[in-house]
Amino acid sequence: MRAQIGEAGLAGNAGVMSRALAIEARGLVKRFDGFTAVDGVDLAVPEGAVYGILGPNGAGKTTTLRMLLGIIDPDAGYRRILGSERPHDVARAIGYLPEERGLYPAMKATEAIAFVGALRGLPLREGRRRARKLLEEYGLGYAADRQIRQLSKGMAQQVQILGTLVHRPRLVMLDEPFSGLDALNQGKLEKMIRGLAAEGTTVIFSTHVIAHAERLCDDVAIIAGGKVPFAGSVDLARDRIPAQVRLETRAVAGDWVHALPSSVRREGRFWHFPLPDTGVEPLLRTLIASDAGILSLSIERAGLHDAFVAIAGEAAARSLAADEGGEERK
């Protein structure tokens, strides 16, 4: 059954509808024993984009990815991946890193990467050649002949990520790829994702860490409670909250104060208020004419974290913060 596209979905995805889509989903629903894990999710992921699914643990991110991949079937809705409504028909063009990591402990790193590639149709001999090259490129050449059990958790995860890429997929889907990596290796993974995008590969990843999505993504879907209240560009999400003006004046009183927005708050010589719809130019003219003594002025756009709070709500934001805190303690 193909679900109708609601107004919110149209508005959120308007910026990408004119581009070819690597992934298109409408009204995806999945229930488990009477519990609705995913409730009417719409996604539109352009080819060549870096796309993030952002939300707390339990929001429905993994279930959504598994439905897109055909690992599980939706109870309702429509999906198209790389032009096909049958995900298994295009499986060899997809690289997938599941949330639950798993490699055979006795396998050597090179063999593990080649084995994952073979599952996607890559001949083992070619897989071994590419595996050694990838390990060298990402600073793991010394581990090529070590067994997985001899590697640290972070190194083993990097090996599995390379296995996801070894067959050179058109579409890469990563479920919480930064989980378990230290800051250095998170940086390496971010660089890897940017490199894939530069080559034209579509990358979609789920995360509960806003910073990764803000640094990497062209577009994001914010998911909470199995629903997607927002899907679109990071800039569009941030624009949900007006930019904030920080004004410093020499004078702290005068008729010019009445020209400031009613929502202004004062901290010493500093004034804080949302950027007016008319911009700051009319206000600046009034301040200059009234000799308010402008010492500094800055305009700061909202970050993706503030946008997430505004879109998903305080409860989802608290869950996200708890997830991030738990990840840092690992």
Results as ranks from 00 to 15, higher is better:
residue 158 Q to G: 01
residue 190 E to A: 14
residue 112 A to N: 04
residue 223 I to W: 03
residue 219 D to A: 11
residue 98 P to W: 01
residue 107 M to W: 15
residue 117 G to R: 10
residue 75 D to C: 06
residue 131 A to L: 13
residue 112 A to S: 10
residue 219 D to H: 15
residue 62 T to R: 04
residue 220 V to Y: 07
residue 262 S to F: 05
residue 45 V to Q: 13
residue 116 V to M: 15
residue 225 G to S: 04
residue 210 I to C: 12
residue 174 L to P: 01
residue 307 A to R: 06
residue 235 D to V: 11
residue 304 L to F: 09
residue 24 E to W: 07
residue 159 V to P: 04
residue 1 M to Q: 02
residue 267 E to W: 02
residue 216 L to W: 12
residue 261 P to I: 08
residue 100 E to I: 04
residue 141 G to P: 08
residue 326 G to P: 00
residue 282 P to A: 01
residue 127 G to A: 10
residue 11 A to V: 09
residue 206 S to G: 06
residue 132 R to F: 10
residue 19 R to L: 10
residue 31 R to W: 06
residue 199 E to T: 02
residue 122 L to A: 14
residue 321 A to C: 01
residue 85 E to Q: 10
residue 173 M to T: 00
residue 61 K to G: 09
residue 192 M to E: 02
residue 191 K to T: 11
residue 193 I to C: 03
residue 138 Y to Q: 01
residue 44 A to M: 10
residue 185 N to V: 00
residue 171 L to V: 00
residue 248 E to C: 08
residue 313 G to P: 04
residue 58 G to C: 11
residue 315 A to E: 15
residue 113 I to T: 03
residue 203 V to K: 06
residue 222 I to R: 07
residue 249 T to Y: 09
residue 63 T to M: 12
residue 191 K to E: 13
residue 46 P to M: 11
residue 132 R to W: 08
residue 302 A to G: 13
residue 142 Y to E: 10
residue 316 A to S: 13
residue 24 E to C: 05
residue 150 Q to M: 13
residue 283 L to I: 13
residue 223 I to Y: 08
residue 137 E to A: 15
residue 160 Q to Y: 08
residue 201 T to P: 05
residue 60 G to Q: 04
residue 161 I to V: 14
residue 121 G to D: 10
residue 118 A to K: 12
residue 65 L to D: 01
residue 171 L to S: 00
residue 200 G to A: 11
residue 75 D to P: 03
residue 323 D to W: 00
residue 208 H to P: 11
residue 37 A to D: 09
residue 279 G to K: 05
residue 2 R to C: 00
residue 113 I to K: 05
residue 295 L to K: 13
residue 299 I to Q: 11
residue 199 E to Q: 15
residue 23 I to Q: 10
residue 101 R to M: 11
residue 207 T to N: 14
residue 199 E to P: 07
residue 281 E to W: 03
residue 314 E to V: 12
residue 289 A to V: 04
residue 270 F to N: 07
residue 81 I to P: 00
residue 36 T to Q: 14
residue 15 G to K: 06
residue 126 E to M: 14
residue 182 D to A: 05
residue 126 E to G: 09
residue 150 Q to A: 14
residue 12 G to P: 07
residue 250 R to D: 01
residue 322 A to M: 14
residue 117 G to N: 12
residue 65 L to M: 15
residue 105 P to V: 09
residue 233 S to R: 03
residue 231 A to I: 06
residue 263 S to L: 11
residue 184 L to E: 06
residue 73 D to H: 09
residue 11 A to I: 06
residue 213 A to Q: 12
residue 143 A to R: 07
residue 251 A to D: 08
residue 272 H to L: 14
residue 145 D to W: 07
residue 248 E to W: 15
residue 151 L to Q: 03
residue 56 P to Q: 09
residue 146 R to I: 00
residue 130 R to T: 06
residue 20 A to H: 12
residue 295 L to T: 12
residue 91 A to I: 05
residue 64 T to H: 03
residue 62 T to Y: 01
residue 183 A to C: 00
residue 185 N to Y: 09
residue 249 T to Q: 07
residue 245 V to E: 03
residue 187 G to R: 14
residue 185 N to D: 03
residue 42 D to Y: 13
residue 124 L to C: 02
residue 16 V to C: 08
residue 39 D to A: 15
residue 13 N to F: 00
residue 208 H to Q: 13
residue 203 V to T: 05
